[in-house]
Amino acid sequence: MKFNHKQRKIMALILVPLSFTFVCYITLYLLISPAIEPLMSIYSLISSDYAPTLNDENSTDLYANKLVASDIIKASQIIQPTYGDLFGKLSIDSVNIRVNLYYGDGREQLRNGVGLFGGSFLPGFNRTILIAGHSIPYFEPLGDIKIGDIIKISTHYGDFEYKITDTKITDANDSSNYDLEQKEQEKLILYTCYPFEIIGYKSQRLFVYADKISGPTILEEQ
């Protein structure tokens, strides 16, 4: 079937704009698709009706067996949390942070609060405590933290305080930012993605370092 000049002109007027629109659509999709998932995640965090409490039905409530306050506690007296358990609260009054503390730093834990890395230690064991949290909606106020501010952690076996000694912004893949093997002093390290204003993948991390100044000591029994 052959088209005359007039028919070819009409087809060109139809097909050229359609082709241009299609190419523009594909190009735009490729440009914005990397940001779609992070935006949806942030929207989910902000708009979620789910407000976790210390009675979260998906985790163990370790506060039900809260111990009498004591400076020295035997390790056998405390309930060792398992992965996913809600075992404490973390607060920093100076920047208005109050958040649930979970054992484990998986997706579900960091959705509902902040999480203690399982390869680090619980408060009271005179070792390194490494806690992660999303900047939105939990740890973004860390950007306003000051040296000397106090971080509080409350658990079923005692209340702990840590004084902030340093902050650092480093590459996300730099594992030299923490030492999980040291035994000289109990240290608390908080970290979150950085810069805060970037949506999507963030190549840096903000670390906050603090030393223990009060709270019980856990005696590890032989």
Rank of each mutant, 00 (worst) to 15 (best):
Y138S: 09
F125S: 06
L110K: 08
D105R: 07
V114N: 09
G113V: 11
G119T: 12
G113M: 09
I129E: 10
L122D: 01
S91W: 01
L62G: 06
L116V: 14
S70G: 10
G88W: 00
I79L: 12
A132C: 04
I131F: 09
G119H: 09
G104V: 00
N100T: 01
P137Y: 09
L130C: 06
E108R: 07
T60I: 12
D61M: 01
G124H: 03
I153N: 02
I150E: 10
Y83T: 14
L90D: 00
A64S: 15
H134E: 06
I97W: 04
N100G: 01
N65T: 13
I129A: 08
G118F: 01
D149G: 05
F125K: 14
G133V: 06
A69R: 15
S135R: 14
G115D: 05
K74E: 00
G143W: 04
P123N: 06
G133F: 06
F117Q: 11
T128M: 11
P81Y: 01
S59Q: 10
N65K: 14
V95I: 15
E108W: 02
K146E: 14
P141I: 05
G143P: 07
V95R: 11
T82R: 15
I151R: 08
L130N: 09
L142I: 05
L110S: 02
L62C: 07
D93P: 09
I79Y: 00
A75R: 11
K74N: 15
T155E: 02
F117M: 11
Y103C: 05
G84Y: 03
E108V: 12
N96V: 06
E140C: 08
L67Q: 06
L86E: 11
Q109A: 13
G106A: 03
L62S: 05
G143K: 15
E108F: 06
L110F: 01
G88I: 01
L67S: 03
I150R: 12
I79V: 12
K152E: 11
I79E: 12
E140D: 13
N58I: 13
Y83D: 11
N96W: 01
S94M: 08
Y103K: 03
T128V: 10
L101R: 08
S94I: 02
P81M: 05
G88Y: 05
R111L: 13
S120R: 10
G88E: 00
I131E: 03
L110G: 09
E140K: 14
N58Q: 14
V99N: 02
I153R: 05
K152G: 00
S94Q: 14
V99K: 08
S120G: 00
I136Q: 13
G113E: 03
R111E: 13
I153H: 00
I79R: 12
D61Y: 01
P137H: 07
G104A: 10
N126F: 00
N100H: 13
T60Q: 15
G133M: 10
L122N: 00
A64R: 15
Y63E: 10
G118M: 14
R98L: 14
S135T: 13
G84N: 04
F125D: 02
V114C: 11
G118C: 04
L122Y: 00
N112M: 07
E140I: 11
D149L: 00
F139A: 10
L116Q: 09
Y102Q: 11
G133H: 11
